[in-house]
């Protein structure tokens, strides 16, 4: 993450995940996670990058606390330019260590088709 550009593939995925190669089953690309009041002990570099996404912005006017918002795993992957599968594993580890958690009332991912339709319509509107 230094200089004008970096090569996201310079550090290989298995190193980023510390040798873990399988995510938790409930962490999917579309899963939304939020920051928890978990321990804030020493984190590995990539875990810290993920957690930073959940931190309040510097000049954020009304920005809530660190647990301000949820992010989908796919969003995190896009923001960090990392392979989605790698991010799933990173997020899994962060959930295991109590840094991230699922939104309290979120049920297993079963989006209603009409909701998706709405979202899709919204997307089309964007385009």
């Amino acid at each position: 993450m230094t200089g004008p550009r970096r090569d996201p593939d310079m550090v290989r995925p298995y190193v980023r995940t510390g040798g873990q190669i399988r995510p938790r089953a409930d962490v999917r690309l579309e899963s939304v996670v939020i920051a928890a009041n978990g321990p804030t002990g020493a984190l590995a570099a990539d875990a810290r990058l993920v957690m930073r996404l959940f931190a309040p912005g510097d000049g954020d006017p009304g920005g809530g606390g660190p647990r301000g918002g949820g992010l989908a795993v796919a969003d995190i992957a896009a923001a960090l330019e990392m392979p989605p599968s790698t991010v799933r594993i990173l997020v899994s580890s962060l959930m295991d260590s109590g840094h991230l958690t699922s939104p309290p009332s979120a049920l297993p991912d079963e989006p209603a088709s009409d909701v998706l339709q709405e979202v899709l319509r919204g997307l089309r509107e964007l385009v």
Binding site: E30, V32, R67, G70, D75, S105, D109
Partner: peptide, 21 residues
């Protein structure tokens, strides 16, 4: 599920579940 998420978002800070996407 969707509603539930929205509830959560409503209850807690102004965050919506699928918005991020």
């Amino acid at each position: 599920p969707a509603g539930g998420r929205a509830d959560h978002a409503a209850g807690a800070p102004p965050e919506q579940p699928s918005t991020p996407r």
